[in-house]
Design a protein around this nucleic acid. Structure first.
Lengths: 111, 111
DNA sequence: TGTCGTACTTCATCTGTCGTAGTAATTTAA
DNA sequence: TTAAATTACTACGACAGATGAAGTACGACA
C-alpha cells in the first residue's frame, strides 16, 4: 500500500487527470483510481469528496447534476480551463519532485 | 519549488538517508538537503526539528550532545538499526508510489 | 556596535486525510 | 421474497505533519 502522506499532494492532480477527457462522478473516479493503480491506491470516500469541494472552490472543476433513469441524481464534475492549466503545472512539479526525492533514495532490488 | 504536501511523506526518509553514513545535526542536515536538491527543496527549521522528535520517538534515531570548543553544544542524531530498516522500507514504497502517480501524469516537454 | 550565521525551542494555526456514522436507492444472491 | 451488497453520496470530529512567528544565545566579522 501507499502512505497517504505521499499521495496528499497529488490527489487533486489524480482526480483532474481522470476528468481531462470527460466529466465524471465520485464513484466512477474512485473505481478508476483503484483500477489504474492496480489496487495499490484506494482513495477514501471522504478524501475524494473533500477533494471535489476543494477543486470546485478553487475553480478547477464545475459540478452539475444528471438525473439517472429513476430519479436518482449523480453529481458530475467537469474540469475547467484553469483546472487543465493547474493539472499541467502539477505534472511539471512532479517531474522535479521525483528527481529531488530520488537523490535521497537508495535503490534496493529484492523481493 | 516543490509543494510541501508531496514531500510530507518523505521528510523522515530524507533525514534518515543523511544519517546513514555518520551522525549529524540539524543545521548540517538542512544545508545538505538544500545543496543536494539543487536549492529546489529547502526544509523549514520547524519541520526539521519536529521530524527529529518524531524519528526519535519512533526509535529510528538516537540523540547525543557534543560540546563544541567554547561550551556550545549541538544535538547530534545517530540512526538506529530500526531506522535503517525503516529507511529501506520507505525506499521500496517510493518505487511503488512513483509508478502509481506516474499513471496519472502526462509528460509535457517544454521549457 | 550591529548584523550575519549558527543552532536551536516554543507555541499556535492550518490543511488534508480518515474514522465513524448515517441516508437512500438499486442490484444481486439466497 | 427478502436480505445483503453495491452505488452514491453527506456530515462531523479527530489527528498528524507542516508552517509562521517569535524568541534565545553564542561567535564572527565589519
Amino acid at each position: 500500500m501507499i502512505s497517504s502522506d505521499v499521495i496528499r499532494g497529488y490527489n487533486d492532480t489524480i482526480i483532474l487527470y481522470l476528468l481531462l477527457d470527460h466529466p465524471s462522478y465520485g464513484y466512477e473516479i474512485s473505481k478508476k483510481i483503484k483500477e489504474m493503480s492496480d489496487e495499490k491506491y484506494i482513495i477514501k470516500e471522504t478524501t475524494l469528496y473533500s477533494a471535489f469541494n476543494r477543486l470546485q472552490k478553487n475553480g478547477y472543476v464545475e459540478s452539475f447534476y444528471q438525473e439517472q433513469s429513476h430519479g436518482k441524481r449523480r453529481t458530475y464534475y467537469r474540469i475547467t480551463e484553469s483546472g487543465v492549466n493547474y493539472y499541467y503545472e502539477k505534472c511539471q512539479e512532479w517531474e522535479v519532485t521525483k528527481e529531488v526525492i530520488n537523490q535521497f533514495i537508495k535503490e534496493v532490488n529484492f523481493k
